[in-house]
Design a protein around this nucleic acid. Structure first.
Lengths: 138, 138
DNA sequence: CTACGACATGGAGTGAACTCGAAGTCAAGC
DNA sequence: GCTTGACTTCGAGTTCACTCCATGTCGTAG
């Protein structure tokens, strides 16, 4: 919608990252299409902001800045790298999905441990070995 | 079952963390019941190993060593701290569950972006703005 | 003209969680 | 007796991802 370019302050506001982080991200090459005005100040297009939003999301799933940088590098090379980018995304998606499942398993494990505490609290008996201290193998 | 005490090397093998990390964990107080033999070498009981396994799992869900240390401190104080420990676990479980849900949402987001790439690949048309670059609000 | 606020740069500092290296001890094998 | 390997301690070093700071420029308001 809005075609106007945003300052770094505005960009920080809308993306939720600090100005320092935006400069840092740009320096290490994870950002795209950040331009400058006549006095050298950064100007962020909607596309630049959308990219930052993607970066923030990928970071929040544990993707390293190094991997994001590689992805950004492909994006800079143009549309002929779309197949590679697609692959990177799919691989990362699979990793996140696996991580989500792993977390859910640990939720179940913790529930079992809490149940062990509940049992102690209910019966007043402390077992020899704390219940469910260990998880099922891996 | 086995009541024998394990060396740090064996403990590292069965828990999957390095000897250095075991010593580091002990130093900062996240471990319980690590004893020493006559020559000062660490000996890990099954309970100690079970505790390490729990620590590893909590760490792998992003719980900080500081929080784990606090939890271990409570465990050292004995069974009267079971209610507090139970609370800590429940709170952390809720955080993990929320994180699992968040990751699943991002999986869906990435799927939409991949679908955007698929569309480009299929049609050969590159849209003005890359599809699904931005996620739905938070 | 001066002050101010928002920006710029470069480089140093931070915190978390390890990870490594140096130097020493100890028991077992040759 | 000497070597080897597994351990010990202590402190320093590493990595990642920021985060902060000093200093400087620029455009507008008073």
């Amino acid at each position: 919608m809005s075609a106007d370019l945003k300052t770094i302050g505005e960009a920080a506001d809308v993306t939720g990252v600090t100005e320092d982080t935006l400069r840092f991200y740009e320096k290490i090459g994870v950002l795209l299409e950040v331009e400058r005005n006549e006095s050298g100040h950064r100007r962020y297009s909607d596309r630049a902001l959308a990219w930052i939003a993607l970066v923030v999301r990928l970071r929040s799933t544990g993707m390293t800045l190094e991997s994001i940088q590689a992805y950004a590098e492909l994006a800079r090379r143009g549309s002929e790298t779309i197949p590679q980018r697609r692959e990177i995304l799919i691989e990362h998606r699979d990793q996140i999905a696996a991580e989500a499942r792993r977390l859910s398993e640990i939720v179940a494990l913790i529930d079992r441990k809490v149940a062990g505490y509940d049992e102690i609290l209910r019966s007043g008996i402390i077992p020899q070995v704390s219940p469910c201290e260990v998880a099922p193998p891996a």
